[in-house]
Design a protein around this nucleic acid. Sequence first.
DNA 1: GCCCAGGTGGGTA
DNA 2: TACCCACATGGG
Length: 221
Amino acid sequence: MPKQKQLLSIYSRLFECYGPQHWWPGETPFEVMAGAILTQSAAWSNVEKAINNLKAANALSALTLRKLAIKDIATLIRPSGYYNAKAKKLKALVNWLGRYDDDIPRLAARDTAGLRKELLAVHGIGPETADSILLYALDKPVFVIDAYTRRIFTRLGIKPEKDTYDEWQKLFMNSLSVDRRLFNEYHALIVRLGKKQCRKVQKCEGCCLKEGCPDYTLKLR
DNA sequence: GCCCAGGTGGGTA
DNA sequence: TACCCACATGGG
């Protein structure tokens, strides 16, 4: 089967099984941006706690975060883990936004490639975080690659020659139509499936995505 | 107590 | 370029 058909077929099966995911879980573009940093190597349940702390302190805006000291930001986002490192990263993000007067619609109007390059130059924003911001906060058609994507598709026998972020992204973006809604839903569904991975390989019932589990098939639910 | 979660940056060979 | 490691909380 051609790669394009395989990817669309997997997407259909995921969508039929789980339905629309309504991603990203965030009320404003800025909340999405902050969430993209806070969720780095962290469970979303912990990120929610951090975001709620920021909301309660009226600190979930670029303006407030620029005024706050790094150690005070760190205290608020403590539940998300790596709080000192992430406080610095949030500072870098809001300082960058300040160069555009925190005008997110104005940002969104700029070209995707140029924006991506600038995001990657911000401390704490790597390719996955940059693409999450582009797709979920700025509505740009880029495919987000994460650990789940690599793990699931490798086990399905679909992977690029080189195991790099850019190669993975090309695999999806060259095989699918460039459609932000498709990219949005597809990535959200991948995470939904990935989160179901079985923790006990010995008792796997077909849901496990871990390396070494003999029973894995893309048996959903 | 142990494992892991929607990564990234910095240092070393 | 290709590895290592630090960064840290909370749920299963």
